[in-house]
């Protein structure tokens, strides 16, 4: 079944992080692009991300972390989603993920191992996010259509 309704995205800044600017810009850009955006704002706990995603039947979780504690804050998120029955939800992570300068490839593979489908480096522009979302969501929709 091809859905005519827009995709629903949950956005939020995880943990005790108060950097609100990036997520606000991102939410605005994605809304402009036609997505149904639920922006949970700053200081969002894993439980809040998950409960929100369940109630609105979200297609993707976009997790932001700027203050350098992303690893602790996002630990176990994928497993918690699985426990809550939304284990295969599309999950992105972006912002400023670790303290200090690191090779981004290392950072990326660490967070991908934690269950994020895509990990974005500092300074990622909304257009890049949009392009990835469109292609990932489209290929997921195609996969669903294939399975009888």
């Amino acid at each position: 079944m091809a859905t005519s309704r827009p995709y629903t995205l949950i956005l939020g800044v995880i943990g005790a992080d108060v950097h609100v600017i990036g997520i606000t810009i991102l939410a605005h850009a994605l809304r402009e692009a036609g997505f149904n955006v639920v922006n949970l704002g700053i200081m969002v706990s894993q439980e809040e991300f998950i409960a929100a995603a369940i109630e609105v039947d979200a297609d993707a979780l976009l997790v932001s972390s700027l203050y350098g504690h992303g690893e602790i804050d996002a630990e176990g998120l994928r497993d918690h989603c699985r426990e809550a029955g939304i284990g295969d939800i599309l999950m992105y992570l972006g912002g400023n993920l670790v303290v200090g300068k690191h090779d981004f490839k290392e950072v990326e593979s660490k967070f991908r191992d934690m269950g994020f489908d895509r990990v974005f480096p500092p300074g990622t522009l909304p257009d890049d996010v949009l392009a990835w979302l469109n292609s990932d969501l489209a290929s997921r929709a195609a996969r669903v259509e294939e399975t009888p």
Binding site: R5, T8, N36, I54, E55, V56, D57
Partner: peptide, 8 residues
């Protein structure tokens, strides 16, 4: 259960 247009 579910927001409008959400989980059904």
């Amino acid at each position: 259960g579910g927001t409008d247009g959400g989980e059904s």
